[in-house]
């Protein structure tokens, strides 16, 4: 009964602390961008610090302020949901420790690319209107800008003579995986949960022998008509050199 009471009473604070420590650590080591949009960084860190102070105050003041007797009943009533038996609580806490404090932080992978459909989200691509893009400074274009242009239906004529420098991770093309891969990025609106994959097709037969899925590459190349006319992608990049790079600090685009 004693353990049970301790768990019931402290599991919220324990889970809070796990979340706070994970947040602060990600913030201090510059990895918050793996999970949330940069506009939340300051707010997230400030709330984590405030919550940490409150949690420590709970440890300091709660024993003195506890009136076990009547309070005990209130808690029993308030939290008796099916899955929330003490075992469930311990499991939740253990899972939170593993998920937030033990696992290495990571970006989303090609598994989510295929789950969500590459270049399948209108909102991730239409946002940059093609009219503005068409006259822009091509040297500063991102994967997202090029993907938007490709999707907007600009033909091979438009792309002739234009050079793109793009960085992203390698995702196989569904229709022609032997010859084409995509330089892929995720577009994030709020946090990684809403990430939508976008990418630019690269024609490089036998690429699978050189580059692994999910590995990061950077390349500079002009756009050409796709030599394989059966492929779904009509315009592709055909680079001379592809350089493997480390995953950038901000793997997502916004």
């Amino acid at each position: 009964m004693f353990t049970r009471r301790i768990i019931r009473r402290w599991q919220g604070v324990a889970l809070s602390l796990i979340g706070i420590v994970a947040t602060l650590w990600l913030g201090l080591t510059g990895q918050l961008a793996l999970y949330i949009h940069p506009r939340y960084f300051v707010f997230t860190m400030v709330m984590a610090v405030i919550a940490a102070v409150l949690a420590l105050a709970a440890f300091a003041l709660a024993p003195a302020a506890t009136d076990e007797h009547h309070h005990e009943k209130a808690e029993t009533r308030a939290t008796r949901w099916g899955w929330l038996w003490p075992a469930g609580s311990i499991l939740t806490i253990a899972a939170a420790v593993v998920g937030l404090l033990v696992l290495p932080p990571s970006t989303l992978t090609t598994a989510t690319v295929s789950q969500r459909g590459l270049n399948g989200s209108a909102s991730a691509l239409v946002q940059n209107d093609a009219g503005k893009l068409a006259g822009g400074d091509y040297s500063s274009f991102t994967v997202r800008d090029w993907a938007s242009l490709l999707r907007s239906g600009a033909g091979a004529d438009f792309f002739a003579g234009k050079t793109a420098t793009v960085t992203g991770f390698v995702t196989p093309d569904k229709s022609d995986p032997a010859n084409v891969f995509f330089v892929t990025r995720f577009v994030v609106t709020c946090c990684a949960v809403d990430a939508q994959p976008i990418g630019v097709p690269v024609y490089h037969p036998g690429w699978q022998n050189e580059y692994k899925n999910d590995s990061w590459v950077t390349l500079t190349s002009g756009f050409r008509p796709n030599p394989n006319s059966t492929s779904r992608e009509s315009v592709v990049l055909i680079p001379d050199t592809i350089t493997p790079v480390a995953q950038p600090a901000q793997p997502y685009v916004y």
Binding site: S16, A96, L103, P104, S106, L108, T109, A111, A192
Partner: peptide
């Protein structure tokens, strides 16, 4: 990613991002 399968990694990443995004608002 400590040798985890991609789907498992993404499960963790997605869940963690919900927690990290929601926590400050809950607090």
């Amino acid at each position: 990613g400590a040798g985890m399968a991609n789907a498992a990694r993404d499960f963790a990443t997605l869940s963690i991002s919900v927690v990290i995004e929601s926590l400050p608002f809950v607090f």
